[in-house]
Nucleic acid binder design. Structure first.
Lengths: 247, 247
DNA sequence: CGTCGTATTGAGGAGGCTCAACTAAGGTGG
DNA sequence: CCACCTTAGTTGAGCCTCCTCAATACGACG
């Protein structure tokens, strides 16, 4: 943690820094003319939240919070990517979600975090004290609704994850993950793969080697090209889409 | 649909009928002395909602709503069990969740349902018009918060589902589902299995035959006893728990 | 330039899927 | 009330995929 401002009210500078970082991205509940993804927060929300938000920076591999800890705050990812995972009784870990800029993490159950969150790239987050946040929701119209919309969005994403895991073919699962990552890519460029093969395996319910071999197959088949370990590029869009849609 | 009262305000009788059916069950966000599951709705919420809720009854196999349809209403399951599923491009279907009494379904994306819901037992639901509901959330303190808590609960359940699907052993997945069903059973009795083997397979990401064989193994090993097709009983609690916790 | 974490590749084995035949149960109409 | 029909469930044989184990290569970082 490099920057950590506590207290209930931020100085103007810190509030300004938090302000532009507070974003809740997702597809809205109700139909609208506007396209897919929007920011659920209004300017008013942002200003109010910014006064009490703490900006925190984490390096790769840093833990943001741990499963089982008292949930003092919820977090909004502002920059970078984190993984949310649960420890299984055996000691293994299963990644339950990747969180990108505009996602929330740290929703508690009975006052405790239900999964751990760890940075997989350098990360900037906004920390919102739960006490302050609940109070703010009570007297800021639409704020709680914004979070509700975001959480519904994460529920949909989680269900999509379940659909991915329901597939039996490794290459198909991988393709669906790449499609997901593509959604977070800047258009035109290659698809960034911020996480390790091991993380991918844990998210897809495969073995590490299974992930590697699936990548090898996609490459051999001329569907995807992998540049280095952290970038992919779709070569054959048609067959890629077919693979994603298969099953 | 056997009972369907529309209009924005219900007569006293219908409102009374809806009143006791309106329940949102789940584990709360914040820690409390009270144990596990609570009802997020207050009496006030129930009374207000009841005036505009429609009670609907469905028989086994009836469709409550379909993926892609305009989402006019959200539903609270009052009695019985439904399955929420998505159609895959191939035409197959994957069950994303089972909804029991106290669960919500029909949360929209861009004004449309994102999955279909079908009754797997005789079912009673409360239908809440989205327009009326959003309006009511604006002028009923705590109502939106109740839904938020419930949706967080469903998000956790969905993540648990993902953990189940991450397992590679069929018997272990099945055991985890049985554990989930056990949570909805009246204590002391056997575990009711309302859904078909095919539904179980679709939920667990297995083949129908795989489900059957896994049941056969649990029975042969003396861990679970199956009475008929819709009831299970844990014979060896210790090994059952070990199986659930394995991996 | 060494070292550790990460990635890759190979051989062998286990588990689940597919295909196919068959049984059981529920529901409908005569 | 029974016969029939449709849906749901069961069992077996063989194949295929993915996992496991083990050895090796790569690459970031000090």
């Amino acid at each position: 943690v490099l920057v950590s401002l506590d207290g209930t009210t931020n100085p103007a500078g810190a509030a300004g820094a938090a302000h532009r970082r507070l974003v809740l991205r997702g597809v809205p509940l109700l139909g609208s003319t506007s396209p897919g993804i929007v920011d659920f927060l209004t300017e008013t929300h942002r200003h109010r939240l910014a006064r009490h938000a703490t900006v925190e920076v984490f390096r790769r591999r840093d833990i943001v919070f741990r499963e089982g800890e008292a949930a003092d705050a919820i977090y909004i990812v502002s920059d970078g990517v984190v993984k949310a995972f649960r420890h299984l009784p055996s000691g293994k870990r299963r990644i339950v979600a990747f969180l990108f800029a505009g996602d929330v993490g740290g929703l508690p159950e009975s006052g405790r975090y239900i999964n751990s969150v760890q940075a997989i790239t350098p990360v900037t987050v906004c920390r919102l004290d739960v006490g302050v946040l609940t109070e703010m929701c009570d007297n800021t119209p639409g704020l709680e609704h914004a979070f509700l919309c975001k959480i519904v969005h994460e529920l949909r994403e989680s269900q999509r994850h379940a659909v991915i895991l329901g597939r039996r073919d490794a290459a198909g699962r991988l393709a669906m993950l790449l499609r997901l990552l593509e959604g977070h890519a800047c258009a035109g460029d290659g698809i960034p793969i911020p996480m390790t093969r091991s993380d991918i395996a844990s998210y897809l319910g495969l073995s590490l080697e299974g992930v590697v071999r699936s990548m090898g197959r996609l490459k051999r088949d001329g569907i995807i090209d992998f540049h280095g370990r952290h970038e992919a590029r779709v070569l054959d869009r048609e067959r890629f889409d077919a693979l994603v849609s298969a099953l």
